[in-house]
Simulated scan of single mutants.
Amino acid sequence: MRAILIDDEKPALAQIEWLLERDGRLEVAAKFTSAREGMKYLESHKAEIVFLDIEMPGLNGLEAAEHIWRIDPEIRIVYITAYSEYAIEAFDLNALDYLLKPVHPERFKRTVTRIIEDLSRIRIKMEQPVPPQATTFKRLALHDGGMSDTSLKHLRALRTLKAQELFAYFIHYKDQWISKDQLLETLWPGGIYEKTTVLLHTSVYQIRKLLKEWNVNAAIEYALDSYRLASDSLIIDKELFERESAELTVQSEARREAVARALSLYAGDYLEEHDYDWAVSHRTELRQKYVRLASNLADYEAATGREKDALDRLTALHAQELYSDEICLRIMKLLAGMRDYEAAIAYYDKFEQLLREDLNADPDSTLARYAEHLAKDSVKDSANARRGR
């Protein structure tokens, strides 16, 4: 995303340019010492954000903003001012944010984060997301544009639990050939061959009927004594999750958006409401990836000035992974970084009590030592505060 800088003071221009280069999330497309030069540039060049000084000779920043929005109504403006009273007027003119001179690096970092979030929301809103047609997180279900989301166990087309399980198995191995023997051994183990073969054929018929009734562009194909669910257009939440989460690291805003999309798909553990033995190992793998992704995203949010978002994400994750020492330690370190030692210690005490009551166990020794260290820091911080008063 491109930014232009407008300030009649060259040292102020140089500082904003240096802060942007240091942050690395926005590109400086151009810089100007007059509002008219900047406006002329925008008439023939695209930029997403303008850092605009308010107090300039001739056409000041507040007046220039009106002209800039006529050129590009979607552009975002951040005012720069040495006088805080301008801030109220700036927000009356729908500025995204304002910065007081001299600009503090941490305050600037929060402003850039706000810019990225605002532009990302607009972009996501403009996109037309394609919802999954089949969901496997938490429960197996089909979703069709004109029909309400309904669990497959309530669909008349699949009259037996085994037919539902067979459909889940086909989805699990979508586009892969599965031998007839593998299907029989997995879904009807130990059964009489002739009888289980009839059950397989009946279940396949029910699935084909379901796909036709729901107008799903997919087919159960048969060749060389093997079956497969073939489809180029059937969208499955598990596939989307695995595609978006192929890379576990989060080091950019683009990755942050992709990971957030992936996490939003995870409505629950893979087929957790179905007692399918063959799904257990994959369920565990996906769960581990989900925890890792959420943790990495929280780390990125904390590092880019969104400590509250990171804290909310980690506490929600800890509610699912109740006995995780590692997540507890992450939360405590985040609270300590926010200098909220009391909250960090209180969180540890609550976690320690949970482990003792539920598991008759103590927290990890590393976690316990960190809690002791925080308690000492809290005492020092309180003492320094009293001396300051």
Score class of each variant (00 low, 15 high):
residue 208 R to P: 04
residue 216 V to E: 01
residue 250 V to N: 05
residue 363 P to D: 03
residue 31 K to P: 09
residue 183 L to I: 13
residue 103 V to C: 05
residue 134 A to T: 12
residue 75 I to Q: 07
residue 83 Y to C: 08
residue 83 Y to R: 14
residue 206 Q to S: 03
residue 112 V to Q: 04
residue 173 Y to W: 14
residue 231 S to T: 05
residue 215 N to V: 00
residue 154 H to C: 07
residue 115 I to N: 07
residue 211 L to P: 08
residue 174 K to A: 07
residue 386 R to E: 01
residue 236 I to R: 13
residue 81 T to V: 06
residue 144 D to I: 14
residue 4 I to Y: 04
residue 56 M to G: 14
residue 344 A to G: 02
residue 181 D to K: 12
residue 50 V to I: 15
residue 242 E to Y: 07
residue 176 Q to E: 15
residue 223 A to H: 13
residue 328 C to A: 04
residue 388 G to M: 15
residue 17 E to Q: 08
residue 279 A to I: 05
residue 253 E to D: 10
residue 127 E to R: 14
residue 164 Q to P: 06
residue 58 G to C: 12
residue 216 V to Q: 05
residue 351 F to C: 05
residue 127 E to P: 11
residue 143 H to D: 05
residue 327 I to E: 00
residue 289 K to F: 08
residue 108 F to P: 00
residue 305 G to D: 00
residue 187 L to S: 02
residue 306 R to W: 10
residue 106 E to N: 02
residue 69 W to T: 10
residue 89 E to A: 13
residue 302 A to R: 05
residue 54 I to K: 10
residue 323 Y to N: 06
residue 295 S to W: 09
residue 274 H to S: 14
residue 88 I to D: 03
residue 130 V to W: 12
residue 274 H to M: 11
residue 234 L to G: 01
residue 243 R to V: 09
residue 386 R to K: 03
residue 166 L to C: 00
residue 199 L to E: 06
residue 286 L to D: 03
residue 103 V to G: 03
residue 27 E to M: 02
residue 173 Y to D: 15
residue 141 A to G: 13
residue 23 D to N: 11
residue 29 A to W: 09
residue 212 K to V: 06
residue 336 A to K: 11
residue 336 A to I: 06
residue 227 Y to G: 02
residue 102 P to A: 01
residue 93 L to P: 04
residue 153 K to A: 14
residue 53 D to C: 14
residue 176 Q to Y: 10
residue 179 S to Q: 14
residue 355 L to M: 04
residue 173 Y to S: 14
residue 389 R to C: 10
residue 87 A to P: 09
residue 218 A to K: 03
residue 182 Q to G: 11
residue 85 E to C: 03
residue 222 Y to A: 03
residue 304 T to M: 08
residue 100 L to P: 00
residue 228 R to V: 06
residue 383 A to V: 03
residue 171 I to S: 01
residue 111 T to I: 00
residue 55 E to Y: 13
residue 45 H to A: 06
residue 257 E to H: 09
residue 299 D to G: 07
residue 266 Y to E: 11
residue 206 Q to F: 03
residue 248 L to M: 01
residue 279 A to S: 10
residue 26 L to P: 03
residue 155 L to E: 07
residue 259 V to R: 06
residue 249 T to S: 05
residue 386 R to N: 01
residue 89 E to F: 05
residue 337 G to D: 10
residue 113 T to I: 04
residue 237 D to R: 15
residue 109 K to F: 02
residue 104 H to M: 01
residue 379 V to Y: 09
residue 73 P to E: 02
residue 331 I to S: 02
residue 32 F to D: 10
residue 311 L to H: 08
residue 360 N to W: 03
residue 320 Q to W: 12
residue 178 I to L: 08
residue 241 F to D: 08
residue 153 K to H: 15
residue 148 S to E: 03
residue 287 R to W: 01
residue 354 L to H: 12
residue 93 L to Y: 05
residue 340 D to A: 02
residue 195 K to R: 15
residue 273 E to G: 11
residue 254 A to E: 15
residue 209 K to P: 00
residue 64 A to T: 10
residue 201 H to M: 11
residue 364 D to V: 02
residue 347 Y to R: 07
residue 1 M to V: 07
residue 68 I to N: 09
residue 134 A to F: 09
